[in-house]
């Protein structure tokens, strides 16, 4: 049998190894610690490096160094730890380095709590670190999808030379489902001839850097990167839809919340209400087009999140006033129930 039962965290770690990631730098924090624990066990067996850094700050800078040296590299953390990594992330984006960062989101702000949340949406898709930069953000909603997205994350990072974040919540990290691992190919990806591997006295020195002396010079670099971001927006958007035809109410939800939303849609169906779902898989680039296209055909949309309303802003931008966009969320580590979401559907149907 090719299927194994795995926790989300373990599945991310194993998928990374299958994707030829041989360098992992981490720091323990609940609820993502299993990723480090799994890496610690597996990396030495595949000839890779697992290193527990002295802090999240150090870990992300080790990622910067290793990415600059041309290897596939990953780090993982949970919300407060991701805040600490933001400095390094900005430098990684500024130096155009490929790497994968996992955020298994817990409740915040501050120490918050260890229960699942989606309240790092803004931090992930709107910046977090300083400067004009973007990061591809992928939010899977099942363990199998977590495996597939982890592999995609490494490919996208290498293809575009940029950081890619895999974002799950504590529940996705902790739950188990059966998964299978696809075969991984990397021969279609560009060569890393820019990496610092030593000149061997055969080429000019490679420099990994984000500092530019003249404002015009820096502006040019940023605008060129912006073109890359535009290409990504045109070609890499991923989402999943269900029952959009004839739907009166459309829920928009990602990650674990999307699965709960599905249960609510089933309840609605039992009660004779037609509801559909748009589930963004890439949070950046955001699936603006499908939302805009759906808006004229529905009574309203409801954003369901484990936050006080973050993604809802992007939905409203996409809808651009064409239909009402409501919000329902739980926060602080509390999880919405199918019944509560169904109540919202009934209210607005």
């Amino acid at each position: 049998m090719d299927k194994v039962l795995m926790k989300g965290n373990e599945a991310i770690a194993e998928a990374a190894i299958r994707a030829n990631c041989r360098h992992f730098f981490g720091y323990p924090i609940t609820p993502q610690t299993e990723i480090s624990a799994y890496m610690a066990k597996r990396m030495s067996k595949v000839g890779g490096t697992f290193l527990q850094a002295e802090s999240e700050v150090a870990a992300i800078n080790m990622v910067y160094g290793a990415a600059g040296a041309g290897v596939r590299v990953m780090t993982s953390s949970s919300s407060p730890g991701i805040s600490l990594k933001m400095e390094g992330l900005s430098y990684i984006a500024g130096a155009d380095l490929p790497c994968v960062i996992v955020n298994i989101v817990r409740a915040g702000p501050g120490l918050g709590g260890i229960q699942p949340a989606q309240s790092d949406y803004f931090q992930a898709v709107k910046g977090g670190g300083h400067g004009d930069y973007r990061m591809i953000v992928i939010a899977p909603s099942s363990i199998q999808e977590t495996v597939d997205c982890t592999i995609d994350a490494f490919d996208l990072a290498d293809k575009y030379r940029m950081p890619v974040m895999l974002m799950g919540d504590g529940m996705l990290g902790q739950m188990m489902e059966p998964v299978s691992f696809p075969e991984v190919k990397t021969d279609h990806l560009p060569k890393k001839d820019w990496a610092t591997t030593g000149t061997k006295m055969k080429r000019k020195a490679n420099i990994i850097n984000s500092l530019y002396i003249h404002p015009e010079e820096l502006e040019e670099v940023i605008l060129k990167r912006e073109e890359k971001y535009n290409t990504i927006y045109e070609t890499e958007v991923k989402y999943h839809t269900e029952g959009l035809e004839n739907a009166d109410v459309v829920l928009v939800a990602y990650g674990t919340t999307a699965r709960i939303a599905k249960a609510a849609i089933a309840l609605a169906k039992q009660n004779g209400i037609k509801a559909g779902l748009i589930r963004p898989i890439t949070l950046w680039p955001f699936p603006t087009d499908i939302i805009a296209k759906t808006a004229p055909n529905v009574k309203c949309m409801i954003s369901v999140e484990m936050s006080t309303g973050q993604m809802v802003e992007d939905i409203r931008l996409a809808v651009n006033g064409v239909c009402p966009v409501h919000f329902y969320g739980r926060t602080g580590g509390a999880v919405p129930t199918p019944t509560a979401i169904f109540e919202q559907i009934r209210r607005y149907a």
Binding site: L5, T30, P31, I114, Q115, G170, M175, M176, E177, P178
Partner: peptide, 8 residues
């Protein structure tokens, strides 16, 4: 199947 623990 799915398996979801309480954690923490």
């Amino acid at each position: 199947v799915s398996w979801l623990p309480s954690y923490g």
